[in-house]
Amino acid sequence: MTKGNWQKLSSGSYELAGDLTRDTVPGLWDDLQTLTFEQSSLTISLSGVLRVDSSGMVMLIHLLEHAKKQNCHIMLSFVPQQLMTLAALSSAEELFLGHI
């Protein structure tokens, strides 16, 4: 297991890396839900994500909603196939539309 981590790359660019699983999401979400989004849009790279399970998928959905409530649109880049498969199996693909 690799702890999930959140890193700012530049002004409007962030990266999520490591495992986004039921073991790592609670600690990561504690950090993410305190974020305030000052810009109207930003990009989050998932290129460093090693594993993602349904907990990780739900955390990302909540992150998109958290940003939306602050008038910030998030675009996800380098989305792992594992996440897209989970979204399809969970009928949650629609929640990611416009963010990939």
Results as ranks from 00 to 15, higher is better:
1 M>F: 03
2 T>Y: 08
3 K>I: 10
4 G>S: 08
4 G>K: 09
4 G>P: 11
5 N>D: 10
5 N>P: 00
5 N>T: 14
6 W>D: 00
7 Q>D: 05
7 Q>P: 00
9 L>C: 12
10 S>R: 02
11 S>I: 09
11 S>M: 11
13 S>V: 10
16 L>D: 10
16 L>H: 07
17 A>W: 02
18 G>I: 00
19 D>T: 00
20 L>S: 01
20 L>V: 11
20 L>G: 12
21 T>V: 04
21 T>Q: 09
21 T>I: 04
22 R>M: 14
23 D>F: 12
24 T>A: 14
24 T>C: 11
26 P>E: 11
27 G>V: 00
28 L>C: 01
29 W>A: 07
29 W>D: 01
29 W>G: 00
29 W>R: 13
31 D>H: 10
31 D>M: 09
32 L>R: 06
32 L>C: 06
33 Q>M: 14
33 Q>R: 15
33 Q>D: 07
35 L>K: 13
35 L>Q: 14
36 T>A: 11
37 F>Q: 02
38 E>I: 14
38 E>P: 05
40 S>R: 13
41 S>T: 14
41 S>P: 08
42 L>V: 08
42 L>H: 06
42 L>T: 08
43 T>V: 15
43 T>Y: 05
43 T>Q: 15
45 S>C: 07
46 L>E: 06
46 L>I: 03
47 S>I: 03
48 G>E: 04
50 L>P: 04
53 D>P: 10
53 D>T: 05
54 S>D: 05
54 S>Q: 06
54 S>I: 03
54 S>E: 09
54 S>G: 13
54 S>V: 05
55 S>G: 08
55 S>E: 03
56 G>T: 09
57 M>A: 03
58 V>R: 05
59 M>F: 02
59 M>P: 08
61 I>W: 00
61 I>D: 03
62 H>T: 01
65 E>F: 10
65 E>L: 12
66 H>G: 13
66 H>E: 07
66 H>S: 09
67 A>Y: 02
67 A>R: 06
68 K>D: 15
69 K>P: 04
69 K>L: 15
69 K>V: 10
71 N>D: 14
71 N>T: 07
71 N>S: 15
72 C>I: 10
72 C>K: 10
72 C>R: 09
73 H>G: 00
73 H>D: 04
73 H>V: 01
73 H>W: 07
74 I>A: 12
74 I>Y: 06
74 I>T: 01
75 M>S: 04
75 M>C: 05
75 M>N: 00
76 L>A: 09
77 S>N: 06
78 F>R: 10
78 F>M: 11
79 V>T: 13
81 Q>A: 14
81 Q>G: 14
81 Q>P: 00
82 Q>V: 01
82 Q>K: 11
83 L>S: 01
84 M>F: 02
85 T>Y: 08
86 L>S: 03
87 A>F: 10
88 A>Y: 13
88 A>E: 15
88 A>R: 11
89 L>S: 02
89 L>N: 04
89 L>Y: 02
89 L>M: 13
90 S>P: 05
90 S>Q: 09
91 S>K: 13
93 E>M: 04
94 E>C: 05
95 L>I: 01
95 L>S: 04
97 L>Q: 15
98 G>E: 05
98 G>T: 02
98 G>K: 01
98 G>V: 07
100 I>K: 13
100 I>W: 12
100 I>F: 12
100 I>M: 14
